[in-house]
Each structure stands twice: as C-alpha cells, then as structure tokens.
Simulated assay, not measured.
Amino acid sequence: MQNLVVFFAAAFFEIAGCFAVWGWWRLDKSALWLIPGALCLGLFAWLLTLVNVDQAGRAYAIYGGIYIVASLAWLWAVESTRPDRWDMLGSAICLIGAAVILYGPRSG
C-alpha cells in the first residue's frame, strides 16, 4: 500500500511540474512558473526512489500505469474536462498492467 501512495504522490508532482512548464510555454504564464515546476519535478524524482522495488526500470514501468490514471484525474480536476469512456478503459488496462508488474511473483 505504501508503494501506491508514493507512486500517486510522484505522479501528482510530475504532472504539476510539467503543467507549470506547459503553463509558461503554452498558456503565456510568467516564467516564474518554472520555479515551482522545477521543484515539483525534483520531488517527483526523489519520491520514485522511495518505492519498494529493486530495479529502477520496474519501478518506472509500474509508475507509468499510475501516471496515466493520475493524468486523467488532473484533466478532470484541473482542466475541467471529464475523461470519456475510452480514457477510462485505457487507464484501466494500464492499471491492470501496472498491478501485474508490481504484484507478480518473482523468482529469486
């Protein structure tokens, strides 16, 4: 359960950091948006080191599925656009894949 909390926290900070750059570049926001954006991206990277997974690549693969779900939550909560059924189906497939990678039995 701790891994899931860390993965979702990392996703929030990555999306927030990237959105800050998006805001500066695409929405004509102040370049000052880049400061909290950089801090959020640094926090995201640090958070991923806290998950209880032995290999970085496996942690990133699991995170990918969670990132997709968190991105759609951001779409709805921050950008006021409700995900459609295809968004939901795709994110469910990704979460299933992430769960297989996270909880699958490992030899050795």
Score class of each variant (00 low, 15 high):
Asp87Gln: 09
Ile35Cys: 08
Glu14Arg: 10
Leu41Ala: 08
Trp46Met: 11
Tyr60Asn: 04
Thr81Gly: 03
Phe44Arg: 10
Ser80Leu: 10
Phe19Tyr: 15
Arg26Trp: 02
Ile62Pro: 10
Leu32Gln: 09
Ile66Trp: 06
Ile93Met: 14
Asn52Ile: 01
Thr81Ala: 13
Gly23Gln: 11
Ile68Gln: 14
Asn52Tyr: 01
Ile68Tyr: 10
Leu43Lys: 07
Leu43Ala: 15
Glu14Ser: 02
Ile15Asn: 12
Pro36Gly: 08
Ala92Cys: 09
Ser91Pro: 07
Trp22Asp: 05
Ala20Phe: 08
Gln55Thr: 13
Val69His: 02
Gly64Trp: 06
Asp28Val: 05
Asp87Cys: 08
Ser91His: 08
Trp22Gln: 06
Ala38Trp: 02
Ile35Arg: 03
Ser71Asn: 13
Tyr67Met: 14
Trp33His: 13
Val21Met: 11
Gly65Tyr: 04
Trp33Glu: 12
Tyr63Phe: 15
Leu34Pro: 07
Val78Pro: 02
Arg26Gly: 10
Arg82His: 04
Asp84Lys: 01
Gln55Trp: 12
Met88His: 05
Leu48Cys: 03
Leu41Asn: 13
Val78Gln: 10
Arg26Gln: 14
Trp24Pro: 02
Tyr60His: 00
Ile62Glu: 13
Leu27Gln: 15
Trp76Glu: 04
Pro83Met: 11
Asp28Asn: 15
Asp87His: 15
Leu50Gln: 15
Tyr63Arg: 07
Leu89Val: 14
Cys94Pro: 01
Leu89Phe: 14
Phe19Arg: 12
Phe19Asn: 15
Leu50Ser: 12
Met88Asn: 08
Ala92Ser: 08
Asp54Arg: 12
Gly42Met: 10
Leu41Tyr: 05
Gly65Asp: 03
Glu14Lys: 05
Thr49Ser: 11
Asp87Val: 00
Leu75Gln: 10
Tyr60Pro: 00
Ala77Arg: 07
Leu48Lys: 08
Ala61Gly: 04
Glu79Phe: 07
Gly90Tyr: 00
Leu75Glu: 07
Leu39Phe: 13
Ala70Arg: 04
Ala61Cys: 10
Pro83Trp: 07
Gly17Cys: 03
Ala16Leu: 06
Ala16Trp: 02
Glu79Lys: 11
Phe19Leu: 12
Ala45Pro: 00
Val69Asn: 05
Trp46His: 13
Tyr60Ile: 13
Ala92Gly: 05
Val78Phe: 12
Arg26Asp: 11
Glu14Pro: 00
Trp46Thr: 07
Ile62Phe: 07
Ala56Asn: 11
Leu47Lys: 10
Trp46Asn: 06
Glu79Asn: 12
Ile15Cys: 10
Gly17Ile: 01
Tyr60Leu: 14
Val53Glu: 15
Val53Cys: 09
Ala45Arg: 09
Ala45Trp: 00
Ser71Phe: 05
Leu32Cys: 06
Pro83Val: 09
Pro36Trp: 06
Gly57Arg: 05
Leu34Tyr: 07
